[in-house]
């Protein structure tokens, strides 16, 4: 049974390694113009025809810029009288995302400290 775990892990695998698209283009992947979408920073918007550029290295460096048609997600503008909660809070962002990177660091430091302290007590 244990021997089947490894092949199962390999065979059931099926996901995420994607080439990175231009900014705000990933939300329009597989969609058509005017379809609703989400920008890279999770704002609602609509897919619009746009121009994207990519570097062409086929003649070596420095690359030449090549323009191509693409769909990018353009955020819908908010109603003019709507204030965001952040603005109402005096412009200070209250997003939990800002704290997220530090959270595991803090928890681990606590845990590590507790573990080391416990060991010293035993000794």
């Amino acid at each position: 049974m244990k021997r089947l775990l490894l092949p199962a892990a390999l065979l059931l695998s099926s996901a995420a390694w994607a080439d990175l698209p231009p900014p705000d283009a990933s939300g329009c992947s597989g969609k058509q113009a005017n379809a609703s979408c989400e920008t890279d920073d999770q704002k609602a918007g609509a897919c619009q025809q746009s121009k994207c550029w990519r570097n062409d290295y086929s003649k070596g460096p420095p690359p030449t810029a090549v323009e191509y048609d693409c769909l990018t997600c353009v955020a819908s503008s908010p109603p003019p009288d709507t204030k965001s909660p952040a603005a109402e809070a005096g412009g200070q962002s209250t997003s939990s995302c800002a704290a997220a990177p530090a959270t595991p660091l803090f928890l681990a430091a606590l845990l590590a400290g507790w573990l080391i302290r416990g060991k010293r007590r035993i000794v």
Partner: peptide, 22 residues
């Protein structure tokens, strides 16, 4: 293994996780 090494590795894990989340 010794808890001192575990504490060190936990700190490394926490730093990596913080970077991964951020």
């Amino acid at each position: 293994g010794p808890w001192s090494r575990k504490g060190l590795m936990l700190t490394v894990w926490a730093c990596l996780s913080g970077l991964a989340l951020g």
